[in-house]
Design a protein around this nucleic acid. Structure first.
Lengths: 196, 196
DNA sequence: TCCGGCACTTGATCTATGTTAAGAAATAAA
DNA sequence: TTTATTTCTTAACATAGATCAAGTGCCGGA
């Protein structure tokens, strides 16, 4: 178990170090700010109406975030797997109730940090502002790409792009969720797959 | 003219100060890093194939960024007016050729900073990392909202949302551009407007 | 090991939006 | 003021993807 712990922590630091300089002293400050947590498959990490208290770095596992529209239909806007972040950022940063749900698609291990603790951590390790600045820059650019694809490309093109860029997802995530993430119905996705 | 200059600069600093602490010494460092520039209506700030060398803070004016698909159709992904930033961030941060064009819809005044100069400025005024971290956080959240709206709401709902959130745009931007920004054709927008 | 529900597929029909084409209104240019 | 160009509207028709409905296969829990 102790060994597993170390591996998880190293991956978090590994990503921090990709974009900013972290001293050995910073490392222990950072590690102590995050707390490990885990969730079983099909359980909820966040429920609509509650405030999102944490951002989570997924060490291993898979989660989806979605909202339920006025007709009761679920719409998935994120699917995240190992070594990425998940949260409802709007709720997290405003500390107001969320419209979204986050559910585990697999048993999942994470490292989490609360809003207050993160604000304190930015003061203790200002270099982290740089890491998160670059993280959000990239996330923003990706969101715009996905937006363009959804507005101007066919569902089939989006499906093929996803096959190329996230082949692992098709191994681990049911097609009904991938369909919703692509902005189409499971029936349409099924027809698209038949055509190939 | 000198007076105009001061007003412009104050607005830039005003936005920086909203989210981070800027000392008087920092102020002059920041102001000297940005260079004023302007562009006439219908002229291009960025042409597809060229690398985007600057990010621009619009002091007054209006610009659109768009790309041209394989069929030759223009698709607008950003319309920006006074006191906001415009650039092709992907090209800017990677310093590789852009797929996008940026064109002035009005005579526009801006403050610009190059990639190298911005990197240097981050070192001179590390607090700016915080400002841009928060800026990109918000931009990312907005991009996801726009994505959700485009995937799951009707064109009419998106039009009404835009009327509410950006009423000024309808005064200053032709409907053909707003239609493209909303992800529909001018004909569809025209029909939507007739129904109201 | 059997059952019940979830995941996936297929077909028929429907609908929002796109496409094509044309003309009116508004704005810019001459 | 006249002309040219861009913006906006309207109508007829086309289509991608949604909806509704039904059926198959599979996995996990009693």
């Amino acid at each position: 178990m102790a060994d597993t712990q170390v591996t998880e922590d190293n991956k978090l630091l590994y990503y921090f170090k990709k974009w900013t300089v972290i001293t050995p002293e910073d490392e222990s400050v950072i590690l102590s700010a995050f707390e490990p947590c885990s969730i079983k498959k099909k359980k909820n990490l966040l429920v609509s109406g509650k405030t999102c208290k944490y951002i989570y770095f997924i060490t291993t596992g898979c989660l989806r975030s979605y909202y339920i529209d006025s007709k009761g239909t679920e719409h998935i806007y994120q699917i995240r797997m190992d070594n990425s972040w998940i949260s409802d950022l709007e709720s997290f940063f405003t500390q107001k109730p969320s419209k979204y749900n986050i559910e585990a698609l697999e048993n999942t291990q994470m490292l989490r940090i609360s809003f207050q603790r993160l604000e304190k951590l930015y003061e203790e390790v200002p270099k982290l502002e740089r890491y998160f600045r670059i993280l959000f820059q990239k996330a923003y650019i990706n969101a715009l790409k996905r937006l363009n694809a959804n507005m101007w490309e066919t569902a089939m093109d989006r499906y093929n792009d996803m096959l190329k860029e996230h082949p692992m997802m098709f191994q681990r995530v049911p097609l009904i969720y991938i369909a919703s993430y692509l902005g189409i119905t499971p029936e349409s996705l099924s027809r698209i797959r038949k055509r190939i």
